[in-house]
Design a binder for these strands. Structure first.
Lengths: 156, 156
DNA sequence: TGACAACGTTTGTTATAACAACTATTATCC
DNA sequence: GGATAATAGTTGTTATAACAAACGTTGTCA
């Protein structure tokens, strides 16, 4: 039987290889899932990138992080952290200050407003995930987690 | 033990839920995999989006497709097919002509040059996939394929 | 048959991602 | 200790993604 992926992509010819099919499956699923989350984030006027950065800063609260560190922890590696932070700072969701010991570093911290915004989103985001993936159940989610981890080849 | 995902994201706190972990796992894996392919495509000066569109047109050769149809078949749903095609047409990788029967439609077809460019890329792309996913082996690839398909909730 | 809706594509606008060049600060090493 | 490299962040530029409004063509229905 045709997979949902084939139907979605209106694929008429078979995939070139098993690897290619899985590759496209992962990309397509990622696209679908992140689209759902984007919808939720729109109510807070946040892009997925901005949300990701704020989540990272919440995880690093109250110590804060440098720009580079934020960029490296993001799901989609990000090069232009400066302007991303400019926008969040303009909305008072983060603050920035020079590191006393090493003036090159800029320590970025999430603000009370930022934390409050994230708190508002926690439930709707969790519900979105449950709606999109909850039907898989514990066993399949665990399998998927294990296989995705196996798929990740660490950079040499 | 910590997963590769946790290490990659330098995650210090546990994920909010199993669903969230899988969600981030899929997004991160997709990012990693597509980064590898982008590297390969760079040698042909093609973006992943352009490559995806050309692949679709090769699949629909020689009948061709309308703009909307191309946009809908793409892995990441695309809204601005017109300008994407403008760029490909400027490079003589596609041609466009009005449908005789219904002047609203614009039939887009891949050219010989476009087919030749794709043919050049077939082997390096396949090798990239094998490098990135081949180590999983048949069984795990099949499982992953099945689970990803199960994860896809079709739009109602 | 003529107004209106539906459809496919184009265009305008804005925001942001990607890349490289640049500035400022700290570390290294002779 | 001073030239040089390394590091952190900024800025400039270009290309493109996202969104909505507009345009032209075809279908529908009174």
């Amino acid at each position: 039987m045709r997979t949902k992926l084939e139907r979605e992509l209106k694929q008429t010819k078979p995939f070139a290889s098993r690897e290619e099919e899985v590759y496209l499956g992962i990309l397509f699923t990622a696209e679908r899932l992140s689209w759902g989350v984007s919808e939720v984030l729109r109510q807070a006027d946040l892009t997925p990138t901005q949300y990701n950065a704020l989540r990272i800063l919440r995880g690093a609260h109250p110590e804060g992080l440098s720009c580079n560190e934020i960029g490296e922890r993001m799901v989609t590696k990000y090069t232009d952290v400066t302007r991303l932070m400019n926008r969040l700072e303009a909305r008072r969701l983060i603050t920035r200050e020079r590191d006393e010991r090493d003036q090159r570093f800029l320590v970025t911290r999430i603000t009370k407003d930022g934390l409050a915004l994230l708190a508002e989103l926690d439930k709707p985001v969790a519900e979105c995930h449950r709606r999109q993936l909850g039907h898989l159940g514990e066993r399949q989610l665990a399998s998927l987690r294990r296989l995705l981890d196996a798929a990740l080849v660490l950079p040499e």
